[in-house]
Design a protein around this nucleic acid. Sequence first.
DNA 1: AAAAGTAGAACGAATGTTCATTTCTGTCAA
DNA 2: TTGACAGAAATGAACATTCGTTCTACTTTT
Lengths: 211, 211
Amino acid sequence: MPYLNKVAPDPEPLDCRVLTAALDLFVERGFHNVSIHDVQRESGVSMGSIYKHFGGKEGVAKGLYYHLLKEFEEMMDRVIQEVPGSRQRCERIITLLFEYTETRRSIIEYMLHAKHREFLPDEPPICSSGPFKAMRRIVQEGMDAGEIRRGDPWVMASSIFGGAIRLIHLRLDGLVDTPLPAFRDEVIECVWQGAGNGESLVQQSRIKAAG
Amino acid sequence: MPYLNKVAPDPEPLDCRVLTAALDLFVERGFHNVSIHDVQRESGVSMGSIYKHFGGKEGVAKGLYYHLLKEFEEMMDRVIQEVPGSRQRCERIITLLFEYTETRRSIIEYMLHAKHREFLPDEPPICSSGPFKAMRRIVQEGMDAGEIRRGDPWVMASSIFGGAIRLIHLRLDGLVDTPLPAFRDEVIECVWQGAGNGESLVQQSRIKAAG
DNA sequence: AAAAGTAGAACGAATGTTCATTTCTGTCAA
DNA sequence: TTGACAGAAATGAACATTCGTTCTACTTTT
């Protein structure tokens, strides 16, 4: 079973072996280029059991999705519990996402880089799921508390996390070959100069004049 | 034929009708949930002609991809030709992307929101294509000229365009229901406070102290 | 003995591709 | 102007294959 934090029990239960194999295959080739027979072969679990547990190919993808969504949700809860202050929470989330991109690459790719709508047509978009809502809630609370400059919630959340997520995509696509944690400080610096409750409007007007 | 700027000739040639139908279907359902028979039916062009012109289903997707890549490339050339200064070029690109997200939604979705690797396995990732290279070149030139704060090129490019691209994704996923051009000024403000050759390091240190 | 898992053959539906045939189009002799 | 005709373009029914799913007979575990 692909875990974000826990370690897998040994011997792994049957359904976990299926999800592990499925994650690797789906990420490597894409859901539609993987047959359920491939998952069967790779996991070593019989066809009958796969259908017993998951009900079909889509069921496997859905099971994997729910399992990982829950882990992301737990990650957010932990951040909120352990870290005080909206800004530091945002920083912690970016830090964790960068770390996991290196150490749990398949998971990040399956959750942040796949088009779930194409193989889980009944699921709402992942950006409307719990973990993403939590991120936006953190931003909103930061604005309410005056820690983060006020603005449209969508714009502010995108400004804060957009650069990091973009970098993750570029890294997963093989364009960036530096491990992302190396960029942490620089990214965060950019973020807060952008979303800080900016007094430096001077700078902005100077830009317009110079342009 | 889906065009970013030109208007379609009348009557449309056969291969254009195929691409128009394919774009709509691929964007609506995803490449793998569309059969070539669907494209046949929707376009009204016979099976044989489709194979004559494109060589197969993947050929249709590839033809569409190349056609639109060229149009994006032309868009970048136009921006570079018409707009002086790196910052203003970046702003113009964001403005255009926001506009096209509303007026040429399918095109933006096919180019910025699809996972091409899953159906065009031989293509390099779109972020390594001409238009994206152009965007990074603009950022690099801006850094060289002192218009944009110096930093890792990947980080700076992601910081500048990441928020906007994230917002486009959220809009295409149906989460944001305000047309994006309304956010233009606010997004750009965030961008330049983040990537400006920032004097406001005071602010930054104050943040660290407060955290 | 009941429950859970395995192995793998079989099946139907869907899909990508092919190709024999028909239709169109421009040319040229009558 | 007509009509024959050749080559190109277009057609769509037929084909082969793949894939998701089901099922049966058998084995292991509890």
